[in-house]
Structure formats: C-alpha cells, structure tokens
C-alpha cells in the first residue's frame, strides 16, 4: 500500500461554477500559481447545477477525487444556487461518509479573487487524495 501511495497520481474531477471558482482558477493562472496537474475541470454555470449524480458517476468512473467549487454563500451570481448546492453536497457526503467514500469528495467556496486559494486547494486536495489512496473502482470493470 505504501508503495502505491508514493507512486500514484490521483485523478481529480473538478466541478466549478463559472462566476467564482472557475474565475478563481483563471486568476491562479494569470498569477502563474503552479499547482499539481491532477485536476480535470468541468465548468458549470453555477454550483446549483451540480447534480450529485455527477459526483457519483465520476467516482464510479474511477476518479480518485471530486472537487466542487462555488461562490461563497451569499455571493452566488444566481442568488440561491450555492445554498441549494450546499444542501445537496452535504446530503451526498453524508451518504458517502457511511460508505467510507466521503474523503474523496470535497467542496470549497472560492471566489473570483481567490486564485491563491484555488491553487492551494488543488495542492491540498492532491495530497489528501494521495493519502486516501487510489479509488478502488479505478481498475474495476464497472
């Protein structure tokens, strides 16, 4: 197991809202903040569009981690989207926690001006997922 942890590069799927976290990722770019290349970003207009089924699908497809980024509560471009998202993600993670899968899913509120927070979160998350280890679904026939 130790060997695997050392050598493995996690695959992380990231759902980001267009207005805050995606913009924060852009700012990380314009500020040339390097972060590990594990993330594959899927842009949604709002974290309110995140159907938790997408997270499940990502995990079952073998993603080692799923990141969800939205505007800070109260700053949603669509006023309420991230409040709904928070409830959905909380519910999903509560389910996943019981199945021992919650550590693979993480969400953060990252605003357009928090490029550094985005880069830091990517770095932290890559580390965390390395600790958690590869998704057992990764090489399964599913």
């Amino acid at each position: 197991m130790e060997e695997v942890v050392g050598g493995f590069e996690p695959k992380i799927v990231g759902f980001t809202c267009n207005w805050c976290t995606y913009a924060g990722a852009d700012l990380a770019g314009t500020s040339r903040k390097k972060y590990p290349p594990n993330i594959r970003i899927i842009r949604l207009m709002c974290s309110g569009r995140l159907d938790p089924m997408f997270v499940l699908k990502a995990l079952l497809n073998g993603a080692d981690g799923v990141f969800i980024g939205g505007c800070h509560p109260g700053e949603c471009h669509y006023i309420k989207g991230n409040f709904y998202a928070r409830r959905r993600i909380a519910a999903l993670r509560t389910i996943l926690k019981q199945l021992g899968l919650d550590k693979r899913v993480r969400s953060e509120w990252i605003s357009a001006s928090e490029g550094d927070k985005f880069a830091r979160t990517m770095k932290d998350m890559a580390e965390e997922i390395k600790q958690v280890g590869p998704n057992p679904m990764r090489d399964k026939i599913l």
Partner: peptide
C-alpha cells in the same frame, strides 16, 4: 422538503 430550502449559515462541517 429539505432540498427546497436553506439557512444562510449551515452545514459547512459536512462539505470537506
């Protein structure tokens, strides 16, 4: 229904 409503501050401990 829980998914149709929300509190301004809640559930942060369940997100990460």
């Amino acid at each position: 229904l829980p998914f149709t409503t929300y509190e301004d501050e809640e559930l942060e401990e369940c997100l990460r």
